[in-house]
């Protein structure tokens, strides 16, 4: 079965991203396909490569990146929500005249249409948020 996952809250503050990650891993373990993970609202902060949690804690951002690289997942960060919250990739940083970008590996920034498309293409779309 083809799954889509929507993450609406940032890392550490709320359990949503943890739940979504463990759900995604369980999906893959059962042989399902994950069409896309979409990050919206404060969920875009899950993509910050500047995240540095204490060494004895889980690294939520790296964990998403690693899962995506291992299973070729499509991690999409909403551009409108990202711009509001200071999240940008190299292209966007250039376009906006900013001196840095901060998107972690395996994440890409794109439009909200990608969320609607996931709703259309997936057999199930599961939301994690507050």
């Amino acid at each position: 079965m083809k799954f889509g996952i929507l993450v609406n809250e940032g890392p550490y503050q709320h359990q949503a991203s943890d739940s979504a990650y463990l759900f995604a891993k369980a999906c893959l373990a059962k042989g399902h396909e994950i069409f896309r993970v979409f990050f919206y609202h404060d969920g875009v902060n899950n993509a910050s490569r500047l995240t540095v949690p204490p060494a004895d804690d889980r690294h939520i951002v790296n964990r998403w990146s690693a899962l995506a690289q291992e299973h070729n997942l499509d991690l999409v960060v909403c551009i409108a929500a990202a711009q509001r919250r200071g999240m940008m990739d190299d292209n966007e940083a250039k376009r906006q005249g900013k001196d840095a970008s901060n998107i972690a590996p395996a994440f890409r920034i794109s439009g909200l249409g990608q969320l609607v498309e996931a709703g259309i293409q997936c057999d199930r779309l599961v939301t994690f948020g507050d």
Partner: peptide, 19 residues
């Protein structure tokens, strides 16, 4: 909170997909 506004943004985008 921002949820109502950002929800509306998805609604507007969804219109383009003729669902």
């Amino acid at each position: 909170t921002i949820y109502a506004l950002e929800s509306l943004e998805v609604v507007l985008i969804s219109a383009a997909f003729e669902q």
